[in-house]
């Protein structure tokens, strides 16, 4: 069973790297990019076979290590 975790900065937290990417896209001629938010994608291969248990475990992992909830949000997708 696999879990896909997206970690992104919370709204209201400035994202200097996202801003730099936005400027770079602009200088490459890509117009109309209103905003860029950069985050992390983490893929986990889990021994667990129960989706609910897997989700609960990954949720705990996110809170304890994978995300810093002072500044980041996370979302979890479990793929059977």
């Amino acid at each position: 069973m696999k879990a896909k975790v997206h970690v992104t900065l919370k709204n209201g937290v400035l994202d200097p790297q996202g801003k730099a990417i936005q400027h770079a896209l602009g200088s490459l001629g890509y117009e109309g990019v209103n905003d860029v938010r950069q985050g992390k994608f983490i893929e986990l291969d889990l021994a667990e076979t129960d989706p609910a248990k897997a989700k609960a475990a990954v949720e705990a992992m996110c809170k304890q290590l994978l995300a810093n909830t002072v500044i980041e949000n996370y979302s979890i997708e479990i793929i059977a």
Partner: peptide, 17 residues
């Protein structure tokens, strides 16, 4: 210490990268 929860807040990438 912030990551360990002993101090408030977080330290992010410098504004000018």
């Amino acid at each position: 210490l912030t990551e360990a929860g002993l101090l408030p807040g977080a330290l992010m990438r410098n504004r000018d990268l």
